[in-house]
């Protein structure tokens, strides 16, 4: 069963006189427990897609079904409730609240959801232990290393046991070794059944995923899950690397061999 089902999604931004199609004609289905990387150059619409999947943004057309429920028609408060319980976010810049300790940051989603203090404390303690942070519970973000901060952020994203974990460049602010740790952590969560969607520039990370979605100009250019390559013939792969922020161009697309480029 598909945990995420997008049909005919359109997202249009009006910048002055010009109209930008951030997403157009997007049809994607993602099954529960999948490990998906959304890849593509800057401005390709992958962040817009992630925001949309996280219910932070609404499509201008099309429907989005999360766990079988149409969530595009929900009120903002209902969407907030869905975000609270079914979606976890991991950000590039961690987004920890600087004045709160690691434990308090992890407890934040439960506090917002109104979970009683005693249950919060117990679940936070367990989560910190699981993520190897039990010695850092009372440290504030500025007293933590980058890798520890991202682990706190992941603990926070998963504390409500969401259906989908959305990670936006989770290793973008980390060095390679710590980044690898974080990726392994996310993959471990995926192995335990959590649907994992990572947005990344980095082909090394992208190709670790079992499925890659290649975005360009707001369209899905390539989905490694489908054998059909849409419109690839009139757009050669070269431009994909054109505006890639991190410089490293993705290896020539190897759509049918998912982990070919991984180290």
């Amino acid at each position: 069963m598909s945990v995420i089902q997008l049909a005919g999604i359109e997202r249009v931004f009006h910048l002055g006189d010009s109209v930008v199609h951030a997403l157009s004609r997007l049809d994607v289905a993602i099954d529960a427990g999948e490990y998906v990387a959304i890849m593509g150059p800057s401005g390709s619409g992958k962040s817009t897609l992630l925001n949309l999947l996280g219910l932070l943004d609404r499509p201008d057309a099309g429907s989005y079904r999360l766990e079988g429920r149409d969530v595009t028609t929900l009120s903002p408060d209902e969407q907030a409730a869905v975000r609270s319980r079914r979606i976890g976010f991991v950000f590039q810049s961690f987004h920890l609240v600087p004045r709160l300790t690691a434990a308090e940051n992890v407890a934040l989603p439960m506090m917002l959801a109104g979970i009683p203090v005693a249950e919060r404390a117990q679940r936070v303690a367990q989560a910190l232990k699981d993520f190897g942070l039990d010695q850092r519970a009372d440290h504030r973000p500025d007293q933590l290393s980058g890798g520890q901060r991202q682990r706190v952020a992941i603990a926070r994203a998963t504390i409500m046991q969401p259906a989908v974990l959305l990670a936006d460049e989770p290793t973008g602010n980390l060095d390679r070794a710590t980044g690898d740790d974080v990726i392994h952590l996310l993959e471990a969560l995926n192995e335990r059944g959590m649907t994992l969607i990572i947005v990344t520039h980095d082909p090394k990370i992208g190709t670790r995923a079992r499925r890659q979605l290649m975005m360009e100009d707001g369209e899905l250019r390539q989905d490694s899950a489908s054998t059909r390559l849409r419109q690839l013939d009139d757009n050669p792969p070269g431009p994909l690397s054109g505006k890639g922020g991190d410089g490293e161009s993705p290896a020539a697309p190897a759509p049918d061999k998912p982990s070919a480029g991984a180290a």
């Binding site: 907030a80 609270s84 917002l112």
Partner: peptide, 16 residues
Amino acid sequence: TSEIGLLKALGARGDT
């Protein structure tokens, strides 16, 4: 501002 964005992403409602 970014904290408010974060709280919303974590499921805070507008009135919260």
